[in-house]
């Protein structure tokens, strides 16, 4: 476990955090209506689903884009 490994892991942590900030930004706008005294179940479910569906959309688009590229290369 040396310095390079440590730096790489810290860099990945930073990227992970940046990604969480971005998801939180998008899903806050999608799910949070008026902030109340606590997060209700509906909002909690929405936030969980929002992250998963955003990743689904991202994967769907990336895979479909790769397919289109392949088709056009043939």
């Amino acid at each position: 476990y040396d310095l390079q490994e440590f730096l790489l892991m810290e860099k990945q942590k930073a990227q992970l955090n940046a990604q969480i900030h971005e998801f939180n930004d998008i899903c806050w706008e999608k799910c949070m209506d008026k902030p109340g005294t606590k997060i209700d179940t509906r909002t909690e479910t929405c936030l969980n689903n929002c992250v998963d569906r955003f990743i689904d959309v991202s994967l769907l688009i990336t895979n479909r884009f790769a397919q289109l590229l392949q088709k056009s290369a043939m």
Binding site: C31, N49, R53, F54, V57, F65
Partner: peptide
């Protein structure tokens, strides 16, 4: 890809469900 994901998520996923 980044822009498409962002724009199309906004347009197509109105209420995020379980799938």
């Amino acid at each position: 890809l980044t822009k498409m994901t962002e724009k199309c998520f906004k347009k197509c996923i109105i209420k995020p469900g379980t799938s």
